[in-house]
Write a protein that binds this DNA or RNA. Structure first.
Lengths: 196, 196
DNA sequence: CCTACCGATCGGTAGG
DNA sequence: CCTACCGATCGGTAGG
């Protein structure tokens, strides 16, 4: 019974975090109000604080949920035995799919993480830097093995990861191609840009 | 003498818009306050309103300054007689240089334009759509002439324009390459991704 | 989960 | 360009 209650509280918090991601994406973290958020869920603003400690805690949950997913995936890639180009294509497709499956959270963590309070701000910043370093190492390995052009690896990371964010302004409703076609087109452009 | 006064007011407004771009980029439009902005300039918040009508007017100036620059450049490209690939490379290099020369304003107009009030919101949205359509037409021309792979043109636009935004997280101070090298690396990756 | 409320801060105005 | 101030709204708390 105690366990049931905990699980109920957690799912309630999950709902708040999910609604928060949608609101923060739409309005920006600074312009989104807790009263707006409460209204979207159908409760009073004060009631939110039975499930979360602060507005910032919602942002923390969003950012670290996203970071954990990407870090876990990177662990899997690194411990696998694909070629560098295959690794990059797999990472790229993971980023693209995260943009579809987890749209609001991924955008918010990328765009609003600077509003985190310490120590979360430093922690997130470090995780972000480390992720990019691991990604850059794979590119550099590809260059050494002659699979990839002699380009600057950090620039390639910058280019790729931001290109993927372009999906943000792609609208399911009006687009003429499917999500899979979009993914393939994007992968073709970027992977061919890297290949020797 | 009347003219001198107007010009003095306009340069004062320019200063506010420039400081506003820096603040909006750092904090986000919603989280940036007019008191912060005034303090950065060295006056009281109330004094800002002798030069601008509202917080939103600052955002309007930023967004339409940027839009005008890009539209003017697109006019020049369209009326020139380069090949499609050359046109795309020129547009790309213009985008990259705008990110260096006009960093704060370009980022803010891209990230915060949704906070514009009507009728500016609709106006800006339309201009943005039209710019991308003109860009897509050049890509489609390149595909017809056999210079460019048979990819989805809107996806290519999404990929390219967002890739350029990656420069946002590139720091002059810590980077190991120069701005020119960054530009060339980025152009190589993207243009080679498009070429047949 | 609600009512009632707090101090702080917001964008903006009046008047000089 | 400033002082003095407005009503509105903010994130969050007390108490039930």
């Amino acid at each position: 019974m105690g366990k049931l209650k905990v699980s109920k509280n957690e799912s309630r918090k999950d709902l708040i975090v999910k609604a928060g991601a949608a609101l923060f994406r739409e309005k920006g973290f600074g312009a989104a109000s807790m009263r707006d958020l409460a209204e979207n869920i159908g409760i009073e603003a004060a009631s939110l604080y039975n499930h979360i400690r602060s507005k910032n805690e919602i942002l923390e949950s969003i950012c670290f949920n996203v970071a954990n997913r990407f870090n876990t995936h990177m662990d899997e890639i690194e411990s696998g035995n694909m070629t560098p180009i295959e690794k990059i294509e797999t990472l790229l497709r993971f980023h693209i799919r995260q943009m579809f499956d987890n749209f609001e959270e991924v955008i918010v963590s990328d765009r609003e993480w600077k509003h985190l309070d310490e120590p979360y701000l430093s922690n997130f910043h470090t995780q972000r830097r480390n992720y990019r370093k691991r990604f850059a190492s794979i590119i550099e390995e590809g260059i050494r093995k002659g699979e990839i052009k002699r380009i600057d690896a950090p620039t390639a990371i910058l280019t790729m990861l931001h290109a993927v964010n372009g999906i943000e302004s792609w609208h399911r409703s009006t687009a003429k191609i499917t999500a899979t076609e979009l993914e393939d087109n994007m992968v073709i452009i970027i992977i061919n840009g890297l290949k020797k």
